[in-house]
Design a protein around this nucleic acid. Sequence first.
DNA 1: GACTATATATAGCACAACTATCTATCCGAC
DNA 2: GTCGGATAGATAGTTGTGCTATATATAGTC
Lengths: 119, 119
Amino acid sequence: MTFDRDLVRGSLDLMVLSALAEGPQYGYLIQKRIREASGNLVRIQAGTLYPLLHRLESDGAITSRWDDTTGRDRKWYELTPTGRRMLQDQASQWQEYVNCIRRLLNPALAALRIGPEPT
Amino acid sequence: MTFDRDLVRGSLDLMVLSALAEGPQYGYLIQKRIREASGNLVRIQAGTLYPLLHRLESDGAITSRWDDTTGRDRKWYELTPTGRRMLQDQASQWQEYVNCIRRLLNPALAALRIGPEPT
DNA sequence: GACTATATATAGCACAACTATCTATCCGAC
DNA sequence: GTCGGATAGATAGTTGTGCTATATATAGTC
């Protein structure tokens, strides 16, 4: 992970669900998609991704099935209706949260630019 | 905290440093400022804030001193030059990260709107 | 045959944010 | 005067998530 480990925390689910929104994917592909979409800045480790997928599955957000018709045995994951709802909910919550940070951060950065000691 | 606990993780430092950018503050005031700036959505618990302030202080990002000249004994915190740099660094990192999420999220939400099963 | 990329999995660790709890002061209402 | 609520700070212990390390196995390339 190029970003702080904890920056990513809480938005990893959102990223994985996003990666699955355009159709079924298997783990290794999700990993690559997120890495590439982020310009190599977010690198989810295999040891992070697979337990996360298992958790999402046990939460009912995704389903999985093994399939080797593409030439190799891979575990394909797919969003359930619950997962789609979860993605939308988490996305709007994310957006709202980003707005909160912005309302705090913008005046702070402005204050820094003016100078730390205003008087 | 109204948001998912882990959403906030990794950006709490950023929020606290932001709250201190416009001048010295004491803990309780920081708590209130963040709550109000977020429209009551981010409520940092006292048990979260005070250890966090101690950590930021031991990291050299802020300094503290007790002062009762305002009528009551309060522990005032202030950004150090290190803390100001930290705030700027974390702010730009945050912005970059938000962009990464956006690049993943926008096509995903578009796909959801078109329909889960394209064909 | 050796090495890399692909592909999945689990055990155990680290640590930030949480809950719960404690202490203490100030102020207005009663 | 005292009761409750807001103010003000602190710590102990828990939880959960992402991490590292490690394991397995196949496909393709040199």
